[in-house]
Design a protein around this nucleic acid. Structure first.
Length: 283
DNA sequence: AATGCATCCAACCGCAAGCTG
DNA sequence: ACAGCTTGCGGTTGGATGCAT
């Protein structure tokens, strides 16, 4: 027995939504909440399938959605997250409040991908492009590598030991800032965190030193500062931005691991080694 | 003004995961 | 364990728009 289609296609409308349809859907969901998308079109008086209604609501009508282009900061987050998660757009979107997976996916395909290529970075692997760029013949290989993105930090760490290091994130940041000079600038979405003498004032914040350095000096080749911020505090992303701006540790680069919600100063290729260290500490 | 091309993004499609009986 | 159903995800498409010629 074959699979039933998601909806009875006969007599159902497809294509762009009209204002009238939007209003019907908004009114219905605001009144009844989100439940049983299959039943929504019938109850809301729409000639659409439930899937189409769900998509319209989640990608366009939801009141908590941000509109407009992604900010520089959001773009950087997307790049960092993509480096760690691959094409898991919904997962990436979950770290960007008010943004949808579709929006991020579109932005990636139309803007970021192009920028990275222009900067000589492979948008699939986030590593410097070789002389041969990824053409159609190599797409399959790239796909396979992407599908094998390790789940845990430990796995990622193990992999990195034998692989080419990732592109220096500060290079990406600089290039993006340069590139974005010509674009419309948007204000930083969040207020910067309070910092006293280079240390965070909130009790939720910690500063830790590297495992590899029995001394706490960040000048150790594997040394780094780690900052963790309360999940409920939206300032976490700004901590990274702020420290980036501060030129806090000359010779070190600021990285943010959005998945584990930690930021850290690292030296060149030590990015994932440091992430691994953070992961070890958190378990 | 007309045409062709490139770009963008909302919406669609097919598949897989998750849930329930 | 299995089948059927719903929901969610990621890849892809095609219409709208902008720009160059």
């Amino acid at each position: 027995m074959g699979r039933q289609p998601c909806c009875d296609k006969v007599g159902l409308k497809k294509g762009p939504w009209t204002t009238e349809e939007d209003n019907k859907l908004i009114n219905f969901i605001l009144k009844n909440g989100q439940c049983c998308w299959r039943a929504v079109p019938k109850l809301a008086g729409l000639l659409r399938c439930g899937k189409s209604c769900r998509l319209r609501w989640t990608n366009y009508l939801r009141p908590d959605l941000k509109r407009g282009l992604l900010s520089d900061h959001e773009e950087k987050m997307v790049i960092d997250l993509h480096a760690q998660l691959g094409n898991r757009w919904s997962k990436i979107a979950s770290y960007l409040p008010g943004r949808t997976d579709n929006e991020i996916k579109n932005h990636w395909n139309t803007h970021i991908k192009k920028k990275l290529k222009k900067m000589g970075i492979d948008p699939v692997t986030h590593r410097p492009l070789c002389s041969a760029t990824i053409d159609d013949d190599n797409k399959e290989t790239a796909k396979q590598r992407e599908s094998s993105v390790p789940e845990t930090m430990d796995e990622r760490c193990r992999e990195v030991v034998v692989e080419t290091p990732l592109m220096d994130q500060s290079t990406i940041t600089d290039a993006f800032e340069e590139d974005n000079k010509n674009m419309e600038t948007s204000p930083t979405p969040l207020d910067p965190p309070q910092v006293n003498n280079g240390f965070f004032s909130s009790p939720d914040e910690i500063l830790a030193t590297s495992l590899s350095s029995s001394s706490s000096s960040p000048s150790n080749s594997h040394g780094g500062f780690v900052s963790s911020v309360d999940n409920n505090n939206n300032n976490n992303n700004n901590v990274g931005s702020l420290l980036e701006d501060l030129d806090f540790l000359p010779g070190f680069d600021w990285h943010h691991d959005y998945i584990n919600d930690v930021g850290l100063w690292v030296e060149d290729d030590d990015y994932f080694k440091e992430l691994c260290f953070v992961d070890m500490f958190s378990h």
